[in-house]
């Protein structure tokens, strides 16, 4: 099936297209001048949405209904006037129920749009969460980077505030961080303050939630009420950013470990994708075709999957893809600007 990868980079958006997953056409850069932290093709209408940031002109969201030929910028997006906080960055866009669209941003904020991304309304419950004073920014800012909706439940994850769950469409948010370590805090198991790097819900088994955290890899089988740490048994380190799942098999997950929290490059000096096929009880290297010697980084939005393949982009400007299972990797593009995000959609 033909596929398009919206690849967000520090210097604009690139669209990678392929009919056969072997030969790739690269279009771009689009949205020149903007760092694209995340971009998606909305499966409901094919609209491209991009979380765009510029050091001079601030945080924004752009949308295109003609495959990137022309763009509109969201006009109403920001935090309440007269407050102390400002919108520092936009981080993640996620389609929701019906026509709704969700946007995560820094400082630990969530917006909803009901008009296709033209205007955005702040989620007040998360903005005014009673634990907010205990949140703190990670190295990438205090970003709401993961938004998941499954089976009537919504999840967000924020660095470094932790994961939160809402069962009333965002009216209230419950911290779900039990057993998740925050080894950089005086209390290593606090209610909030964990540094989640990526959180995903399995699409076919919505009570199963995975996270790659600053302090380990975790799985929950009860919608985040409790978590099990999974980063022994085959992973070279517990630290990393991206996470991918398998669309059918809820026991499969992929991570790309980094050397340590001080050294943000691939563990053991190799570009290693690690796969579990048993729910995280064990991990194995799935890196055939990837460089054996490499010190690169894959950011939290840099790993994606669809029904046929998995994909990731590096800060050194390469995009790699492999069939489901991660058995054989090939380079789809190279020498792009630093890759911030990768997604996949039917072309």
């Amino acid at each position: 099936m033909a596929v398009v990868l919206p690849v967000g980079t520090r210097k604009g958006l690139f669209l990678l297209r392929s009919e056969d997953h072997r030969t790739w056409e690269v279009e771009g850069p689009l949205l020149e001048g903007w760092a694209v932290y995340h971009a998606i093709v909305d499966p409901r209408d094919g609209t491209l949405h991009a979380a765009t940031n510029n050091p001079f002109y601030g945080a924004s969201v752009h949308r295109s209904s003609d495959q990137g030929k022309s763009w509109e910028r969201s006009e109403e997006l920001g935090l309440p006037e007269g407050g102390e906080l400002k919108l520092n960055a936009t981080w993640h866009i996620e389609p929701g129920r019906g026509s709704e669209l969700w946007l995560g941003g820094d400082p630990g904020v969530l917006f909803r749009s009901d008009d296709g991304g033209r205007t955005w309304q702040l989620n007040e419950a998360l903005f005014a969460h009673p634990t907010r004073e205990r949140w703190q920014p990670g190295a990438g800012g205090m970003c709401t980077h993961s938004i998941q909706l499954a089976d009537g439940v919504m999840y967000v994850a924020i660095s470094a505030a932790g994961a939160f769950r809402s069962e009333d469409e965002g009216a209230t948010w419950t911290p779900i961080n039990k057993n998740v370590a925050a080894e950089f805090m005086p209390d290593p198991f606090p209610e909030v303050g964990q540094c989640v790097h990526k959180l995903l819900v399995h699409p076919k088994r919505p009570e199963r939630v995975w996270q790659q955290n600053h302090c380990g890899v975790y799985r929950s089988d009860d919608r985040g009420d409790t978590w099990e740490r999974l980063d022994g048994n085959g992973l070279p380190t517990s630290f990393g950013f991206p996470l991918a799942l398998d669309p059918e098999d809820p026991d499969v997950a992929y991570v790309i470990p980094e050397q340590s929290q001080e050294h943000h490059y691939t563990a053991d000096g190799r570009l290693g994708v690690y796969r579990t096929s048993d729910g995280g009880a064990s991990w194995e290297l799935a890196s055939n075709g990837l460089p054996q010697r490499a010190w690169v980084a894959v950011l939290r939005e840099g790993l994606a999957y669809d029904d046929e393949a998995i994909y990731f982009g590096t800060q050194s400007g390469s995009v790699w893809t492999a069939p489901r299972g991660g058995s054989d990797w090939m380079e789809a593009a190279r020498d792009l600007p630093p890759v911030l995000s990768v997604e996949a959609a039917p072309a």
Binding site: P55, F56, Y57, G78, P80, E81, G83, K86
Partner: peptide
């Protein structure tokens, strides 16, 4: 037409402009 890129939500001219 680009005023919201020049000013933040508090009405201040962005720092690097």
């Amino acid at each position: 037409p680009v005023r919201n890129l020049l000013f933040d939500e508090q009405g201040e001219l962005r720092r690097l402009i």
